[in-house]
Design a protein around this nucleic acid. Sequence first.
DNA 1: CTTGAAATCGGTTTGCC
DNA 2: GGCAAACCGATTTCAAG
Lengths: 154, 154
Amino acid sequence: MKESELKIDGIDKVILKHLMKDARTPILSIAREIGVSGAAIHQRLRKLESSGLIEGSKFHVNPKVLGYETLAFVGVYLDAASRYITVINQFKDIPEILESHYTTGNWSVLLKIACKNNEHLMTILNQQIQTIKGVARTETFISLDQHINRQISI
Amino acid sequence: MKESELKIDGIDKVILKHLMKDARTPILSIAREIGVSGAAIHQRLRKLESSGLIEGSKFHVNPKVLGYETLAFVGVYLDAASRYITVINQFKDIPEILESHYTTGNWSVLLKIACKNNEHLMTILNQQIQTIKGVARTETFISLDQHINRQISI
DNA sequence: CTTGAAATCGGTTTGCC
DNA sequence: GGCAAACCGATTTCAAG
């Protein structure tokens, strides 16, 4: 887990670049491209995993195909900061909430929410989020268009 | 790509649930759990891929291990909406920008940015984002704590 | 839409440099 | 650190029900 233990060289970067694009890229095809053995890649991957750099690999699903057309950010004002933990725990039970951040600035919490449409968003806001004890007020920003969606570059 | 072509049954859901948690889960271990052949899973996966539901699989890297400790959201006000495209293209050249959304509400654009620390964030704001022609003003919200980070549930 | 078998290919371990 | 070989298991294709 310690950052200090971590040294990533050019080979590690090539491995990560491939796997960050497609987690199912065969190790051996990366090995051939770099010109090392598959076993070497395998050992490096184990090292990168134990260092904590690699959090895991995930299949990504296109929400639009599931009918989730609306992406929104919601700023949440809380009555009192002390309610934070209990409010967050109730947010966890709302599956449409994809991210929850405790933020500096205007609001206490910033949420990222995926909904089927605007009515669905309204339902979640009015019947779920706003009814949680501690939530004072919300401000909603609908994402009309997402142009960038990527990970940190290595 | 058409949603109408898509029917996902219980077996598809089990497959997706596994692969959304770990994209390198062997197909055969899923097959054994469900009680169908590996070939059946394989064919279903091809169907799900061609339907557009599966966008791909990605290794996830822990930004903190790379020294990226600060996550921030930045609301951007533009001079004129007409500059939108050229501004976005310049945002693409800033690797610290992970997401860019054209939003309703206060700002024109909402950005999600990963930085090494607060000074790094300030540098990106002052020397990169603010110098782009068309950017009028920004508002920054630093994420002190992220409690939820997940995909849409299936 | 499924299966089972065949053939191919990738993953992992081990012994060694 | 790395390699090569060997082994095991996964993936893919295909004919057939």
